[in-house]
């Protein structure tokens, strides 16, 4: 059945089940409820605090930060730090790289994941369990850092976009989620398509994909967020600053600041201390797209995880 509207799933998660139990509340339970609310409010406060803190620092002047006086509210309010960071051409260059890497990597990943998932969702396909096994095995055993590094270098991917967009193109988790979704589509639809003379490719493009918008949106979001956040492949395979994604730009700011303050730690780049407010501004600008989109995309992620949990 095609009943995987993401809203409905997240509704189900939010349903209060305690109310349905209909036990008369004891005094002890009323105390518990109050404590419970308190604990959950505390959880929210702790979760949000770091975000509020970097936001406050990003608008504060450096003097107040080094004096340890900035927590929730900006002190010495200014937007000059924003102007400084945004005037840095390398920052925008790296931001643009992040965008390009994310879009290209997500597109490649979606093509490979969708075609693979569709083929292995056909129960009559001979060799199906072998193909599934080939994919699932990579979840539990992988080549490891050095053989991968040697491979990428041998392929000549160093300092190219391919080092970032190709090696992580199929996430087995996403693959299994999509496979589960395709398996649940009613078989009659595709039988009707076959009767109309559509071959496999056209059935996939014209019948199956239009019915799978919800799962496709979820998968695109899963991939896009993971590529947007990724830093290590670029850190490993890119030597030139103009090729970095913004996460590596940020990593270098943070690393510069720490080697400078750690006594006897770095030495070489002890001159590159980066002010906390500059770091904060860069962090704010990096998470901004995700935080802005977050309220709208959250339910898709939740439904994606649920789909995957049906049978992983």
């Amino acid at each position: 059945m095609v009943t995987t509207a993401p809203t409905r799933l997240s509704d189900r998660l939010s349903r209060p089940s305690a109310a349905a139990r209909g036990v008369r509340d004891t005094r002890g339970y009323r105390v518990f409820t109050a404590v419970n609310v308190l604990v959950l409010v505390l959880v929210m406060a702790v979760t949000l605090y770091p975000f509020v803190n970097i936001l406050a620092q990003s608008f504060s002047s450096e003097g107040f930060i080094t004096a340890g006086q900035v927590n929730l509210v900006p002190r010495g309010f200014n937007v000059e730090t924003y102007q400084t960071v945004m005037a840095d051409r390398m920052f925008w260059r790296n931001y643009q790289n992040t965008l390009v890497y994310t879009v290209v990597a997500t597109a490649i990943a979606m093509v490979l994941t969708t075609t693979f998932a569709y083929a292995i969702s056909k129960r009559h396909l001979r060799g199906r369990s072998l193909f599934i096994g080939i994919a699932v095995f990579t979840m539990f055993f992988n080549g490891g850092l050095i053989p991968n590094y040697v491979l990428i270098n041998t392929l000549g991917f160093k300092n190219t976009i391919w080092a970032i967009v190709l090696p992580n193109a199929i996430s087995v988790f996403n693959l299994l989620v999509m496979k589960a979704f395709f398996e649940n589509l009613p078989a009659e639809l595709e039988e009707a398509a076959a009767i109309d003379g559509l071959d496999t490719y056209r059935t996939l493009l014209r019948i199956v994909l239009p019915l799978s918008k919800a799962v496709i949106a979820t998968m695109i979001l899963f991939y896009a967020v993971s590529f947007w956040n990724s830093w290590f492949p670029a850190f490993l395979y890119m030597d030139r600053a103009e090729l970095y994604p913004v996460t590596v730009y940020l990593r270098n700011l943070i690393a510069g600041a720490t080697t400078a303050t750690s006594v006897g730690g770095g030495g070489a780049d002890a001159m590159t201390q980066v002010a906390a407010n500059i770091q904060s501004v860069t962090m704010v600008l990096t998470v901004l797209p995700i935080v802005c989109l977050y309220p709208f995309i959250q339910k898709y992620f939740v439904s994606g995880v649920m789909l995957g949990a049906v049978k992983g």
Binding site: N229, V287, Y294, F301
Partner: peptide, 12 residues
């Protein structure tokens, strides 16, 4: 609120 940190890059 509590799902939010999951979406943050490890660098952040």
């Amino acid at each position: 609120v509590s799902y939010l940190p999951h979406f943050m890059s490890i660098v952040i």
